[in-house]
Amino acid sequence: MKRKFQINGISCGGCISRVKKTLEEHPKIEKAEIFLAPKGATIITMKETLSVDELQKQLSNLEGYTIEKL
């Protein structure tokens, strides 16, 4: 299932690479697509639904990024 999110703190391709890699390390996430236009727009394909809190916890290894549901 695909869900739309906004990741705040995305400013460049390097940010996208780091955040994408971190999210895709979660066993319930199949794919993360993050865009620069509009900045931080994200589509996450999941095997099972994850809450925003669970996704934020996955991002906690990286500083400066927050995620919210659209």
Rank of each mutant, 00 (worst) to 15 (best):
K2R: 07
K2V: 02
R3S: 10
K4P: 06
F5V: 03
Q6F: 03
Q6W: 06
Q6I: 05
I7K: 05
I7S: 02
N8T: 12
N8R: 03
I10S: 03
C12G: 07
G13Y: 02
G14P: 02
I16S: 05
I16A: 04
R18S: 05
K20I: 03
K21P: 08
K21C: 02
K21Y: 03
T22N: 04
T22I: 10
L23T: 11
L23N: 01
P27S: 13
P27E: 09
K28Y: 09
I29G: 04
E30A: 12
E30V: 12
E33Y: 04
F35A: 04
F35W: 04
F35L: 11
L36Y: 06
L36D: 07
A37G: 05
A37Q: 06
P38R: 03
K39Q: 10
K39V: 12
A41N: 01
A41M: 07
A41T: 00
T42L: 11
T42A: 14
T42R: 12
I43T: 07
I44T: 00
I44E: 01
I44N: 00
T45I: 00
M46H: 09
M46G: 06
K47Q: 00
T49I: 11
T49M: 12
L50F: 13
S51V: 15
S51Y: 13
S51C: 14
V52Y: 11
D53I: 15
D53W: 11
E54L: 12
L55E: 04
L55F: 13
L55N: 08
Q56D: 04
Q56I: 06
Q56W: 01
Q56M: 14
K57V: 15
K57N: 15
Q58H: 07
L59F: 10
L59T: 14
L59R: 00
S60F: 09
N61H: 10
L62T: 01
E63W: 06
E63F: 07
G64W: 00
G64R: 00
G64T: 04
Y65C: 11
T66M: 15
T66E: 14
I67P: 01
L70Q: 08
